[in-house]
Amino acid sequence: MQHFFLDTTLGLIILTVLEALAMLVPLLVGVAYLTYAERKVLAAIQLRKGPNTVGPFGLLQAFADAIKMITKETIIPSGANRALFLLAPVLTFGLAMMAWAVIPTNNHWAVADINVGILYLFAISSLGVYGILIAGWASNSKYAFMGGLRSAAQMVSYEVSIGLVMVSVLLAVGSLNLNDIVLAQRHVWFALPMFPMFVVFFISALAETNRAPFDLPEGESELVAGFFVEYSSLSFGLFFLGEYANMFLMSGMTTILFLGGWLPPVGIAPFTWIPGPIWFIAKILFVLFVFIWVRGTFPRYRYDQLMRLGWKVFLPFSLLWMVLTAGFLMATGLLPHSGS
């Protein structure tokens, strides 16, 4: 018996599009409300009220902002390279969306449950720097240019340690499949045995998403707005959404790699009643809250200090941990066999 959705090409395409939409629409709404949540949380930290006029508790603020952003005029500086200038935000936004193809929200719930999932994620998030670099260069503005340069250096530096952290996790799991990575945490979340790696990963995630205290590429008090200083209207909006989508993505990766994805904290009765996706979302929200909390608390690193932290602290440390992990697994015979 042929199944339309699973066995015909057209059916598969339609199914994939529907799956992608089921993923992206909640994601975009989530991103919109993440901006609202960030403003509310920061306001609470700073003894302010935050948005409270548009809709009940200011809940419609996100939509008001979106309408404002869409209806404003797009200004392209006369000295800018038009094509690249417009490509940059699309690239940032597009990549931030694409990455979600492999993220599993429940057991085998992913648009593409591929075996090299984590490799794909790593590749996509590495490409993210191009959006910023292109924006910084194409704007033909010195502040944007410096923001772009800072960003490129920063993302490259921190990707190295993120990569090494991932390798440590992969060693323990024995698979590049994100689904397998989560299932490997049935007994204990990797955040516990690999706590230092968890911390390194989280801090690198802050750097990777250009968040405080690593918000040097935009560094308000130094570079005004950094690489997107020349952007306006929807082109700015795409950057904005892309940045927040990236925050979601990094939180998702943290959740999958270290916080047991959709798994409940302990596999016993009251916890297992709650469906997996709810756990997954709850964990992402918690990580996002920490992102915002950090922003409300810390000053910004200086460029050279950030580099020193990345190359002289995180890189040797994560390398050492990777070797230790491998050594430990070899010595105890716990090293998982390939293809398991």
């Binding site: 700073q46 003894l47 302010r48 405080a212 560094g219 008090s221 608390t297 810390f298 000053p299 910004r300």
Partner: peptide, 16 residues
């Protein structure tokens, strides 16, 4: 001063 080095919150407390 704390805002200039990138700390967002203290300035609100001090203005209060």
């Amino acid at each position: 001063m704390s805002q200039d080095v990138g700390q967002l919150s203290p300035v609100f407390y001090m203005f209060t």
